[in-house]
Measured scan of single mutants.
Amino acid sequence: GSMEQGFLPKGWEVRHAPNGRPFFIDHNTKTTTWEDPRLKIPA
């Protein structure tokens, strides 16, 4: 929902695949990933 959306880094969006699995869109680089960007520790 909109709650989890608010925690994503700037430029990211979460969508759900037809099977219900969430995936993440990085509008900054125009890419998608199954990995939650929030789980990655910034270098």
Rank of each mutant, 00 (worst) to 15 (best):
Arg21His: 07
Ala17Trp: 05
Ala43Val: 13
Trp12Gln: 02
Thr29Glu: 05
Asn28Lys: 07
Thr29Gly: 07
Thr31Gly: 03
Ala43Asn: 13
Lys10Ser: 13
Leu39Val: 12
Pro9Phe: 05
Phe24Val: 01
Phe23Lys: 04
Ile25Leu: 07
Lys30Gly: 15
Phe23Asp: 04
Met3Tyr: 13
His16Gln: 10
His27Tyr: 07
Trp12Ala: 00
Gly6Tyr: 11
Thr33Gly: 02
His16Tyr: 15
Pro37Ala: 01
Pro18Gly: 08
Ser2Pro: 12
Thr29Ile: 03
Asp26Trp: 00
Leu8Glu: 03
Glu4Pro: 15
Ile25Asp: 02
Phe24Trp: 11
Ala17Asp: 14
Leu8Ser: 02
Pro9Arg: 03
Glu4Cys: 15
Gly11Ser: 02
Gln5Val: 12
Ala43Leu: 13
Glu4Ala: 14
Ser2Gly: 14
Gly1Thr: 11
Trp34Thr: 06
Thr31Ser: 08
Asp26Ala: 00
Asp36Trp: 02
Trp34Leu: 07
Gln5Ser: 11
Gly11Lys: 01
Asp36Thr: 00
Trp34Gly: 03
Phe23Tyr: 15
Glu4Val: 13
Val14Arg: 05
Asn19Ser: 10
Gly6Val: 12
Pro22Asp: 07
Phe7Lys: 15
Pro9Met: 06
Asn28Glu: 06
Glu35Pro: 00
Ala43His: 10
Pro9Asp: 05
Val14Gln: 10
Gly20Ala: 02
Ile25Gln: 03
Val14Glu: 10
Gly1Tyr: 09
Pro18Met: 08
Glu35Phe: 11
Ala43Trp: 10
Pro22Tyr: 07
Ser2Glu: 11
Gly1Ile: 12
Ile41His: 14
Pro9Asn: 05
Phe24Asp: 02
His16Thr: 13
Val14Gly: 03
Lys30Met: 12
Arg38Ala: 05
Lys30Asn: 15
Lys10Thr: 14
Trp12Leu: 01
Gly20Arg: 02
Gly6Glu: 11
Phe24Met: 00
Thr31Tyr: 07
Leu39Pro: 09
Glu4Gln: 13
Trp12Phe: 03
Asn19Trp: 04
Val14His: 05
Ser2Val: 14
Lys40Arg: 10
Asn19Asp: 15
Gly1Pro: 12
Ala17Phe: 06
Met3Pro: 14
Thr31Cys: 13
Lys10Gln: 14
Ile41Pro: 15
Pro37Gly: 02
Gly11Leu: 00
His16Leu: 15
Trp12Asp: 04
Gly6Thr: 11
Leu39Lys: 14
Phe7Met: 15
Phe24Ile: 01
Glu35His: 10
Gly6Arg: 09
Phe23Glu: 06
Asn19Arg: 00
Ile41Ala: 13
Ala43Arg: 08
Leu8Ile: 05
Pro9Thr: 03
Glu35Lys: 10
Glu35Cys: 09
Met3Asn: 11
Gln5Tyr: 12
Pro37Tyr: 01
Thr31His: 06
Trp34Tyr: 08
Asn19Ile: 00
His16Trp: 15
Pro42Ala: 11
Pro37Ile: 03
Gly6Ala: 11
Phe23Ser: 03
Lys10Ala: 15
Ala17Pro: 05
Phe24Glu: 03
Pro18Arg: 08
Thr32Phe: 13
Asp36Leu: 01
Arg15His: 08
Lys40Ser: 15
Ile41Ser: 13
Lys10Asp: 15
Pro18Gln: 09
Ser2Ala: 15
Arg21Thr: 10
Thr33Val: 05
Ala17Val: 06
Ala43Lys: 10
Ser2Trp: 13
Val14Lys: 08
Lys10Asn: 11
Lys40Val: 14
Gln5Glu: 12
Arg15Tyr: 08
Met3Phe: 13
Thr33Met: 05
Asp26His: 07
Ile25Glu: 04
Thr31Glu: 08
Pro42Ile: 10
Pro22His: 09
Asn28Ala: 07
Met3Arg: 12
Gly1Glu: 11
Gly6Met: 10
Gly11Ala: 00
Glu4Lys: 10
Trp12Gly: 01
Pro42Lys: 09
Asn28Trp: 05
Asn28Met: 06
Pro9Ser: 04
Lys40Cys: 14
Asn28Gly: 04
His27Thr: 09
Leu8Ala: 02
Arg38Lys: 04
Ala17Ser: 09
Thr29Arg: 06
Thr31Arg: 09
Ser2Tyr: 13
Glu13Ala: 00
Arg38Ser: 06
Thr29Val: 03
Asp26Lys: 01
Lys30Pro: 02
Ile25Ala: 02
Arg15Gly: 10
Ile25Phe: 10
Arg38Phe: 06
Asn19Glu: 04
Pro22Ala: 07
Lys30Ile: 05
Lys40Met: 14
Arg15Met: 09
Pro37Met: 02
Ser2Lys: 11
His16Lys: 09
Pro18Phe: 07
Thr32Trp: 15
Pro42Gly: 11
